[in-house]
Simulated scan of single mutants.
Amino acid sequence: MNGDGPPSALKSRHTSKKLNGVVNGVANGIKDVGGMKKKGGGDGLLGNASFMKWRFGDVLGVVRYHPVPCAFALSLLFFMGVEYTLRMIPPSSQPFDLGFVATVHLHRLLASRPNLNTLLAGLNTVFVLVQTSYILWTWLIEGRPRATISALFMFTFRGILGYSTQLPLPEGFLGSGVDFPVGNVSFFLFYSGHVAASVIASLDMKRMQRWELAWMFDTLNILQVVRLLSTRGHYTIDLVVGIGAGILFDSLAGKYVESKKIADAKTNGTTYETFFTSLKQLNCRTQYEVL
């Protein structure tokens, strides 16, 4: 029994030290938490805010390495000042359009020469038929449905938005019976299907590395924009959003086609990686990328 005494005492002292260590650790933890609460109460969220850690070099680095967002920030401040000080257009007036101001001389030229206006309108209709034919060609002949799906998406949403907010026909509109849509029929102003479809066709040409054809389409599209502004056939916002719509719906159509390919690959019991590898083995990589 005497032989068991010292080890028990040592064990008891060791246990006591461990308990004291645990108690002290908990106490210190409570103090730390209390300190954090105290600090949080004094400094709030700013104490751990990201910008509190910025240095002068970091601020300069933002301007140096991110000039585009910085330019956007300055433009935001500028247009905030413009927006809050500009007088709004009264309901009885026509909308103000900067594109109309820029093309006022061309508008007068076309108004004074109706034959020239008719000629340009006919050329525009031919251009629309060419871009429509190309979009259908990519699906029916080349078996690549992306451009066609993109055009379907685009015209569907154009119809929804155009009907939802029907803009008034611009003052001084120079119509033509041979302009598209042929026959001086009514049409939605927002957004421009002419421009959007041309962008869709051009993007497909670039994916196929048909660079000369793509640049020709882009050039004709720019000329088309100038003509539409000059004839007051569209507001500037219709044309700008038309460009964005072409890019947006081309991207959405690409995601749709890709999702269908992945779904078909899984249905056939293969993985996406295996399916992609098999395409490369069949020398179909270019066709897969452009779809």
Rank of each mutant, 00 (worst) to 15 (best):
residue 244 G to Y: 13
residue 258 E to N: 01
residue 267 T to P: 01
residue 273 E to F: 14
residue 272 Y to K: 14
residue 227 R to L: 09
residue 232 R to I: 09
residue 264 D to M: 04
residue 230 S to Y: 07
residue 279 L to H: 06
residue 232 R to W: 10
residue 254 G to N: 00
residue 266 K to S: 11
residue 240 V to H: 02
residue 237 I to C: 11
residue 275 F to L: 05
residue 230 S to F: 06
residue 232 R to Y: 11
residue 264 D to N: 06
residue 226 V to P: 02
residue 247 I to T: 09
residue 270 T to I: 14
residue 270 T to H: 05
residue 238 D to L: 06
residue 252 L to R: 02
residue 236 T to L: 15
residue 235 Y to A: 08
residue 269 G to M: 12
residue 249 F to W: 10
residue 229 L to M: 04
residue 249 F to L: 03
residue 272 Y to T: 11
residue 252 L to K: 00
residue 227 R to E: 03
residue 261 K to F: 00
residue 253 A to D: 09
residue 257 V to G: 04
residue 277 T to I: 05
residue 248 L to C: 13
residue 263 A to G: 05
residue 230 S to A: 15
residue 279 L to T: 04
residue 274 T to V: 14
residue 237 I to K: 11
residue 259 S to H: 03
residue 262 I to M: 01
residue 264 D to T: 04
residue 248 L to M: 15
residue 279 L to P: 01
residue 256 Y to A: 07
residue 280 K to N: 04
residue 273 E to S: 14
residue 238 D to N: 08
residue 229 L to C: 05
residue 231 T to K: 10
residue 257 V to Y: 00
residue 275 F to C: 07
residue 250 D to C: 04
residue 234 H to R: 05
residue 248 L to F: 15
residue 236 T to V: 12
residue 251 S to M: 12
residue 243 I to L: 14
residue 275 F to N: 02
residue 277 T to E: 11
residue 231 T to M: 12
residue 269 G to L: 14
residue 273 E to T: 14
residue 271 T to M: 13
residue 258 E to M: 00
residue 265 A to E: 09
residue 264 D to P: 00
residue 255 K to R: 14
residue 246 G to M: 05
residue 248 L to Q: 07
residue 241 V to R: 05
residue 258 E to R: 00
residue 237 I to L: 12
residue 270 T to P: 00
residue 238 D to F: 04
residue 254 G to K: 00
residue 231 T to C: 13
residue 274 T to L: 13
residue 240 V to F: 11
residue 233 G to Y: 05
residue 260 K to S: 01
residue 268 N to G: 08
residue 228 L to E: 11
residue 245 A to N: 11
residue 230 S to L: 09
residue 237 I to E: 08
residue 278 S to R: 07
residue 268 N to R: 12
residue 236 T to E: 10
residue 247 I to W: 13
residue 261 K to Y: 00
residue 253 A to E: 06
residue 260 K to C: 01
residue 231 T to P: 05
residue 236 T to F: 15
residue 271 T to I: 13
residue 263 A to Y: 02
residue 273 E to Y: 13
residue 229 L to Q: 02
residue 263 A to R: 07
residue 239 L to N: 05
residue 233 G to N: 09
residue 276 F to M: 10
residue 228 L to Y: 02
residue 240 V to S: 06
residue 226 V to S: 07
residue 238 D to E: 07
residue 231 T to I: 15
residue 274 T to N: 11
residue 274 T to H: 12
residue 241 V to L: 10
residue 230 S to W: 07
residue 230 S to K: 09
residue 258 E to H: 01
residue 271 T to P: 11
residue 275 F to V: 03
residue 234 H to E: 03
residue 234 H to C: 05
residue 255 K to E: 12
residue 246 G to W: 07
residue 246 G to H: 05
